[in-house]
Lab assay of single mutants.
Amino acid sequence: MVIEDPKTNKLIEVEKLPDGTYKVTIYDKKTGEKKTITMSKKDLEKLLKAL
């Protein structure tokens, strides 16, 4: 799943891993910076609600 946040000009890509956690990659379209973090479903839901 890919989500675009027009306010921050970032793309957020979410991928479910076999162990039940989620790999979240955040791309900054302005700088080209890429950050990848792994989080639980509960933390991911908090992140998505904040957008």
Rank of each mutant, 00 (worst) to 15 (best):
K46F: 05
E33R: 05
P18Q: 12
N9V: 10
D28E: 06
D19W: 07
N9H: 05
I37R: 10
E33F: 08
D28F: 01
K35I: 13
K23I: 04
L47A: 04
M1D: 09
E4I: 02
K35G: 07
I12Y: 13
E13T: 07
T36V: 14
D28T: 02
K7A: 14
K10Q: 13
K42R: 10
L47D: 00
D19G: 08
V14G: 01
V24Y: 01
I26H: 10
P18F: 12
V14F: 11
K29W: 10
E45V: 06
E15Q: 09
T21Y: 04
K42A: 13
K16H: 12
K46Q: 13
D43H: 06
L44W: 13
K23N: 05
T25S: 06
E15G: 11
T21Q: 09
E33L: 11
M39G: 06
E45D: 07
T21N: 07
L48T: 01
K23H: 11
N9I: 10
D28Y: 01
A50R: 06
Y27K: 03
S40R: 10
I37Q: 12
T36A: 11
P6I: 13
K10G: 09
E4L: 02
T25V: 10
K34F: 12
K42G: 14
T21M: 11
D28Q: 01
P18D: 09
V2Y: 00
K29P: 04
K35Y: 11
K49C: 04
V2H: 09
S40K: 03
S40Q: 13
I37C: 08
I12A: 04
Y22C: 07
E4T: 02
S40M: 03
M39L: 09
L47E: 02
L44V: 15
V24L: 10
A50P: 10
Y22F: 09
E33T: 07
E13D: 02
L44K: 02
L48E: 03
K42N: 10
K7C: 07
E4F: 06
D28A: 01
E15D: 14
L51W: 01
L44R: 00
V2C: 09
G32R: 00
L17M: 13
K10S: 15
K42Q: 15
I3C: 04
V24D: 00
G32F: 07
K7L: 14
I26Q: 12
V14Y: 12
Y27A: 09
V24N: 00
I12T: 08
L17W: 08
G20E: 14
K7E: 15
K30G: 15
L11I: 11
K16Y: 08
K23F: 09
E4M: 01
T8K: 06
K16S: 11
I37G: 11
K46A: 13
V14D: 00
E13C: 10
K29M: 15
N9F: 05
K16C: 15
K42C: 13
E45G: 05
K34V: 10
T8Q: 11
V2E: 14
T8R: 02
G20C: 15
P6V: 09
S40W: 02
L47W: 13
I12R: 00
L47V: 09
V14N: 01
K23A: 11
E13Q: 08
L11Y: 05
Y22Q: 01
L48P: 00
D43N: 03
I3H: 06
K30H: 14
S40A: 09
N9P: 02
E45P: 00
P18G: 07
T38N: 08
D28L: 01
Y22M: 04
K34Y: 10
K46D: 15
T25A: 11
Y22A: 08
D28H: 01
V24P: 00
P6K: 05
K41V: 08
M1S: 06
K23P: 00
K34W: 15
I26A: 08
Y27P: 02
K42V: 15
E15S: 05
P6D: 06
V14E: 00
I26W: 07
V24A: 11
K41R: 14
G32P: 02
P18K: 12
D19R: 03
V2S: 02
K30C: 12
D19E: 07
E15R: 06
L11E: 03
K16T: 15
L44P: 00
A50K: 06
K42M: 10
S40N: 03
Y22L: 06
K23M: 10
E33K: 03
S40Y: 06
K41M: 13
I3F: 07
L17P: 00
